[in-house]
Amino acid sequence: MHLFLLIGLVAFSIMAVLSRDLLKSAISLAVASIFLALVFFHLGAVYAGVFELSVVAGLITVLFITAIALTRNDGEVAESKRHRIVFPLFFLALAVLDILVMRKLLGQIPAIQGAGSGTFSQVLWNQRTFDLVGQVGAIFAGVLAVLALFRHDSPKGDSHE
């Protein structure tokens, strides 16, 4: 079951890369996100799964589709046809290498068991308060960045029209 979900995740990621239509790419990415969320649920990471579903599969997809709609004024960008051949070769090599390395590592890695304790909200609020400050800062930065790029006064100098 777990393996099946992971394979779905990778398959839809590949579709997102190779699809010729940007809209299809964005939707494949959203489906990949749903698979990732299911993987999280399967591992018991419920909160992360819900967040992945709502924010990544939801919000980020909406952002992508808005941007694609806003920039659709001249046909498609011609991606070279080579990808149909090069990508499978690349992927095969990557997968073989990956399997070889991981087989070698099986049972090899020593590790220390962490001291997992408390409920989710306890961990987030009591241990990771500093992260929340960082989140606020990142959101500020993102909002200010969008405000700065879409401000109304005339842009400086070199337009290439």
Partner: peptide, 13 residues
């Protein structure tokens, strides 16, 4: 993130 926006602040090409 703040620095990406600052680099693009002039909004020229």
């Amino acid at each position: 993130i703040a620095s990406y926006a600052l680099v693009a602040f002039g909004r020229g090409h």
